[in-house]
Design a binder for these strands. Structure first.
Lengths: 259, 259
DNA sequence: CGTTAAGTTGAAGGCGCTCAACCGACGTGG
DNA sequence: CCACGTCGGTTGAGCGCCTTCAACTTAACG
């Protein structure tokens, strides 16, 4: 099950078998980590791209005041391209046990000789950027309750895009501390917001699993619009789906139903 | 004064005269706008890159609840690459009168045939991403007062990087409403935070101008570290500066003093 | 001079924070 | 095997930062 990257990219751009092969045969050291490990420790981020094969990680910053802020979650198939500069003031930490591959920079360049892969990677980066913008909107515009709901919608949808959402249930290795650190709120208050969601029977979180009980209502209170995650390119609508849908906004909606 | 892009890129990567020429001779319609105009209205964002020549703009989202959130400021020399997808749920608005160029996608590809320019553009995008992460940290970790101070430090520094910071003073066409919308706080409270900064004689904002009165103290209360803006690549330290500095962290610090 | 947008000030209240204690699960080591 | 420490989760109390609403002033502009 290390094909999350292929599954993710194939959502946006049609990939040939050759493309899939080269994506599956990337060079670079593959290493397992435990929660709390920092896979970038001692690594030169200008030389290689970090690719999540299994498990979750977070990009975060610890401020001098002792507060931790998570700015991004990395799920299986997500990657962090080598950055031109060495240090952006951020660090990365595993949130669950998982497997990470450090792909050398040259291999990425080689990969991009396939036009489809190059465009798919651009697309992925574009979605990443849009997601960060959406986080700013989420924190800036919504109250704690809706904010949490929105994040859960996003995570479920991202898991869905790599076929790791089973109906309406998926893994969620995050602690409440993690969730609070990514939502700009205290863990105490996050706990209360979570209990409200539970009490409303919208979601159920336990044993590192997330169950979406009422998807429509959850998205409604979250004000969630998955267009920024771009499951279905508007320019190149997926034929499986397009044929069943009226033109316009609906093109952006998801296909799979997870109740 | 339409060379902000060149000045910005040249901070990171050495550009040949040929590079500078092609950057200065980009094709694409050049158009003036007034505050409030939406330069992307009616434009296909998958087909062209928006380049700010003069003035400021903002990328923002209006939520159904009526709240506006600004997720990014665009200063002269900043650009928004054509995105693979059509709509990310964000819109763009001029914050001052200014001049914008819409560069066709092909021209960007041509431009990237110069290795230096390609790397410089990558660098710029990397800084853009790091800046958005820093905004999340800013909003998530700091209280209103420090948050505002941090934003002002960033904006002054960005203006400095395109030679538009004159000593310790630069243009600041933002209204308090704009500032509040980018800092996840109400305009009323922003006004109070601003008055505190003024009362402490750290900054002076009036008549669309920002004056940094006590830079060191301002950065201190903001917890500001300009490394994410990457004035001086650590991998390729600027020789003008490097020779005067001890090795290590200090390499990252700025050269110019703006008191 | 009338209108509109931006800035300022005040009052009231709530959302969310801090601090703190406690519980339960889990892993480790005595 | 049990004691213990640690971590994550839960609950309560108190309070303060920040929001909302509102009125008013000031500035810009036709």
């Amino acid at each position: 099950m290390r094909q999350a990257l292929v599954r993710k990219l194939a959502r946006w751009i049609a990939l040939t078998d050759e493309d899939r092969r080269s994506l599956g045969a990337l060079p670079g050291r593959i290493q397992g980590f435990m929660r709390g490990d920092r896979p970038l420790a001692g690594v030169d981020p200008t030389a290689c791209t970090l690719l999540m094969l299994e498990g979750w990680a977070a990009e975060y910053k610890d401020t001098p005041s002792g507060r931790r802020v998570i700015v991004e979650y990395l799920l299986p198939g997500d990657f962090r391209l080598s950055s031109p500069h060495r240090d952006r003031g951020l660090d990365m930490m595993m949130l669950s046990q998982g497997i990470v591959q450090m792909v050398p920079q040259e291999a990425i360049r080689t990969l991009q000789q396939s036009d489809a892969i190059r465009r798919a990677l651009e697309w992925a980066e574009s979605v990443r950027s849009a997601t960060q913008a959406e986080w700013l909107v989420n924190i800036g515009a919504r109250k704690a309750y809706a904010r949490l709901a929105h994040l859960l919608c996003e995570l479920a949808e991202r898991m869905n895009s790599i076929d790791m959402l089973d109906g309406n249930i998926c893994e969620l290795p995050l602690t409440q501390i993690d969730l609070a650190a990514s939502l700009a709120m205290s863990n105490v208050h996050l706990n209360l917001a979570l209990q409200r969601l539970r009490a409303a029977k919208l979601v159920d979180i336990s044993a590192r699993r997330l169950i979406i009980l009422k998807r429509t209502e959850l998205e409604a209170i979250a004000g969630f619009d998955d267009s920024y995650l771009l499951r279905w390119p508007t320019a190149l609508p997926d034929r499986r789906r397009h044929s069943e849908l009226p033109p316009g906004q609906a093109e952006r909606r998801r296909a799979g139903s997870w109740h």
